[in-house]
């Protein structure tokens, strides 16, 4: 497609304004090739049906206190954890100075629903799924490279740089959330 026809030094012709036409034709060829390439690249982005499934609803009554339910959202695990008062307390009492990625527990849950912690369940290190309830902070422990998260899903130890991510979600009713 991109057969460049630029030839700035044709024999017997001065390389001046005359060559503008070759440059323009060559530029059009490059532009055309780029325009053709774009759909071929963009097709790898999520298709319409994939995007359509990008939000899910979840019924919180399915989680019992002290437990977590893992659901699949956008191909990744989402942890929905019903925290005990002790776990909430522990998370709140942790001074921000102890944290690698300082964030208050209150900012990681919705007001009035502090017991429910909703997190994207992939370790911020290299994407493994941390194990529930393991590790010295009572939160999660990542089996791959030993990152330890607390009961607010914040990174406390190990190679992970950030806290477990909180997805976009909203309460539709007191017991129903829409994630995404």
């Amino acid at each position: 497609m991109a057969e460049t026809v630029v030839n700035p030094n044709l024999e017997g012709q001065e390389p001046t304004r005359r060559d503008f036409i070759h440059i323009a034709a060559g530029a059009a060829a490059v532009g055309g090739a780029a325009m053709f390439a774009w759909p071929l690249i963009d097709q790898m982005n999520p298709a319409a049906d994939t995007l359509a499934l990008a939000s899910i609803e979840f019924d919180l009554t399915k989680v019992t206190e002290g437990q977590q339910v893992t659901i699949k959202w956008r191909g990744k695990p989402v942890f929905v954890r019903y925290r005990t008062p002790a776990e909430i307390e522990a998370a709140r009492k942790t001074p921000l100075s102890d944290l690698k990625d300082p964030q208050k527990d209150e900012d990681r849950v919705k007001p009035g629903h502090e017991q429910f912690l909703i997190l994207v369940g992939t370790c911020t290190h290299l994407g493994c799924v941390p194990t529930f309830g393991a590790g010295e902070y009572g939160g999660w422990f990542c089996p791959c490279h030993g990152s330890v998260y607390d009961t607010s899903g914040r990174i406390r130890k190990g190679p992970a740089p950030k806290n477990l991510a909180v997805p976009d979600y909203a309460y539709l009713t007191d017991t129903r959330v829409k994630i995404g």
Partner: peptide, 13 residues
């Protein structure tokens, strides 16, 4: 048909 309907530019390709 998924290519023709849902994939980006799929119909063209």
């Amino acid at each position: 048909e998924h290519i023709m309907r849902d994939v980006r530019h799929g119909w063209m390709i």
